[in-house]
């Protein structure tokens, strides 16, 4: 697994790295590289609806997007030698996440020997109008 991750990271094939994860395929999580680095998308699917009145995406799936963006950010953008293990995740819900594609990008606030602190912003209309924000701690040992 680690060898596969290292090879895909080397080749810059973040989409293949993402597709190793069954859950990502199940809910429509995708990974890509753009001028800002790693970008994770949650494609809209009816099965991700958690509020039938507003037709809004389930808050748990938005949380999964944030966690997924944080892990992939550590795998792709840092020199992490192991698959990071999430210690905790905190999600702030800022606006309704409606029936459309949602995007997320992570950044490392602090990386120590054992723990990394990653911040993630998720948006639909643009990063300046976030639908959710999160931060997570990961164990790197």
């Amino acid at each position: 697994m680690l060898k596969t991750i290292a090879a895909l990271k080397q080749s810059g094939n973040v989409a293949a790295l993402n597709d190793l994860i069954p859950y990502a395929r199940a809910v429509g999580l995708e990974a890509m590289l753009d001028e800002g680095g790693l970008l994770v998308a949650l494609r809209f699917r009816e099965s991700n609806i958690g509020n039938t009145q507003l037709r809004a995406i389930h808050g748990g799936v938005v949380g999964a997007l944030i966690e997924h963006a944080a892990i992939l950010h550590l795998l792709v953008e840092t020199e992490t030698a192991v698959v990071p293990k999430v210690i905790n995740l905190s999600i702030d819900y800022l606006r309704p996440c409606l029936a459309a594609d949602t995007f997320a990008r992570g950044s490392v606030l602090k990386q120590g020997k054992r723990v990394a602190n990653v911040r993630v912003i998720a948006w639909q209309d643009g990063p300046d109008r976030p639908v959710a924000a999160g931060h997570a701690h990961f164990l790197l040992t």
């Binding site: 859950y23 990502a24 958690g50 808050g59 748990g60 799936v61 949380g63 999964a64 966690e67 995740l89």
Partner: peptide
């Protein structure tokens, strides 16, 4: 995936 636990608990 952790997201499964998150979705279950959120619901």
């Amino acid at each position: 995936h952790g997201g499964v636990i998150t979705a279950l608990l959120d619901t």
